[in-house]
Write a protein that binds this DNA or RNA. Structure first.
Lengths: 191, 191
DNA sequence: TATTGACGAACGAACACTTGTTCGCTAAAC
DNA sequence: GTTTAGCGAACAAGTGTTCGTTCGTCAATA
């Protein structure tokens, strides 16, 4: 089923550029030199394509967090989480864009599943930050807001990241880590 | 033309919930106890509604920045800009959501105009930060990234802000200011 | 080696429906 | 008595999807 991956990838690009509802099945097919009806040899519905993209991105985020050793000290854990998060976005920008932008157009049963996965993913960040505060590494006035602040700064990346631009993943990760750690009143100087 | 404002406001809510393309003219009309064709006594096209919302939000952002005295010291200026930005989002969440989410669906001539307004607006932030760095109030490794980081943290607010929630504008503004200033290595302690 | 048959990818045509928009009409308000 | 907000009907175009069919590939059979 190599062809299905082609369709999903092309759809991801078009969904990113024009949005899910503004992209027709015939648009996707045309971009692959096919006719609209031909896609249905490989997919069940347009919605299935969206699901494939969004669920795949959700899984990518989750796996990248689960790959981090849970016994790392919280500052190193947070640093690794930031790096992993940025990597998922940068490595597949169209998928990440569709994930953030179009997940809401899935039917309720499926979108709820995505919400669950996202909450689970975010809990890795929350816990690292919580541990860091407990151990006196971080210092914040409002822990709940600190989490939102950090997710905000990270999630908006897909809006402005330019693969052709100057910022490579490693530098991006360093800059993010630095500013986030400062906003958390990180005590150690060398991280 | 009071009726036109009703239409725009209702459309703003629906666009926020379902997106521009997934909301039909008949949907908007039905929510106002009207028929689709009736809207055309007050509007020229569906696109005009979107323009009204997006351009209005862009103007709101721009005016809120222009109302800040330009001779304020950069730290106070940035603090005021943050407060003003949050205020625009919180005061009209649907418009802000549509502004961030759906501006791209305007035809190119109009979307370019929005981009210009947004760039102009962002330049107020950039300049305050730049001045702050020059005067030694802020200290960052990469000024360009610092700008992106701050906009990211601020712009994502519309994704999670809950008007029924606990966070009021003033507290929100304080928390944002605190974390952003720390991320900028702000030297003075009492701001 | 030649023939058969199954398979799967791609197609054109058609489907029921929705889209944004127009137009001529009605009924009420000034 | 003029204006106008609202309506129903209709429009051309586009939507996702289904259907029967074609055509090339490849393995098994004769």
């Amino acid at each position: 089923m190599d062809r299905k991956a082609d369709i999903t990838q092309m759809a991801s690009q078009l969904f990113k550029e024009r949005g899910y509802h503004a992209t027709s099945v015939r648009d996707i097919a045309q971009a692959l030199n096919l006719k609209g009806s031909s896609l249905y040899s490989h997919i069940a519905s347009k919605e299935e394509i969206l699901w494939e993209i969004v669920e795949g991105a959700a899984r990518a985020f989750l796996h990248s967090a689960q790959a981090i050793p849970p016994n790392l000290p919280p500052d190193q854990k947070l640093k690794a989480l930031i790096h992993a998060h940025l990597n998922v976005i940068v490595a597949n920008l169209p998928d990440a864009s569709v994930f953030f932008h179009e997940w809401q157009f899935l039917p309720e049963t499926l979108s709820r599943e995505i919400t669950l996965k996202r909450d689970h993913y975010e809990s890795y960040f929350r816990q690292a930050i919580h541990e860091g505060i407990e151990q006196g590494l971080f210092q914040v006035q409002d822990e709940h807001f600190a989490n939102l602040f950090i997710f905000s700064s990270l999630n908006w990346l897909y809006q402005w990241y330019d693969p052709e631009g100057l910022l490579r993943l490693e530098q991006l990760s360093n800059l993010y880590t630095q500013m986030i750690f400062k906003s958390l009143n990180y005590q150690k100087l060398n991280h």
